[in-house]
Amino acid sequence: MAKVSIKFRLKQEKFLKLNMRAMLETTQTIFISVFIIEIILVGWLILKGRNLNPTARWLSFIALAFIPLGFMVLGNYFIFENSKSVSSCAGCHVMQPIVNDMLAEESETLAAVHYKNNWIEEDQCYTCHTDYGLSGTFNAKLDGFGHLVRYITNAYSEPIKYRGVFPSNNCGSCHYEQDNFLEVEVHQNLMATFKTNAMSCMNCHGKAHPKDLKSASAKLPPHQSVAGLGKAENIQEIKEYILTLEK
């Protein structure tokens, strides 16, 4: 099987992510438009719809079945996509010291180095903390659900700690194919160990996040904030990118 170059894969991922941002923006617009229709319909049905004539029956079907079902589907889609962003992770105050460290110019932790060098363009937390494949995404969502429950019920203690062992394959999915990784003799010798997650990359390369977590408020750049996702400049970026593909 032909080996797909890392550059092509990153290009592909960027294209998909930009599309996803535009879709999130569209989801927000659809939600607000449908919400206005729903409120008008509900108000009309409460005030005027005393008898269910055929028109009112159809309108009640739209207000009580079709729109609620649509809201549920779109709402869950929004949760799944939006929860990938750094701003979503920083939404819980316990995560803010970790995000602050990642955004700090002077920090030398693995996460900060990856961030300031733009090695991972978007959704940096999600990219590293999600195991690959469908089960990886499912497990990440399940973990996120657990985090949400613990956060809102205050069932956690600070500072938070990472449970388990970080899988080397999460690093490897980008690094295994890179020349500067393969050039290192130790990496070649330990490849089998990495692939079975028997050895952590952090044993040699240091911590991904700081050990001492000081509480501080996260200051996210505008392009990371949810309000700024998929705005006109991103749509323009998508168009420009499609043009480069066509060439």
């Binding site: 939600f31 919400f35 409120i39 809201f71």
Partner: peptide
């Protein structure tokens, strides 16, 4: 049902506009 649909829609839109954990 109508009241529930309206209330749930309001929560939904609030979350979409201000996506925070609560």
């Amino acid at each position: 049902e109508l009241i529930f649909a309206a209330l749930a829609s309001i929560i939904c839109v609030l979350y979409i506009l201000f996506p925070e954990p609560h």
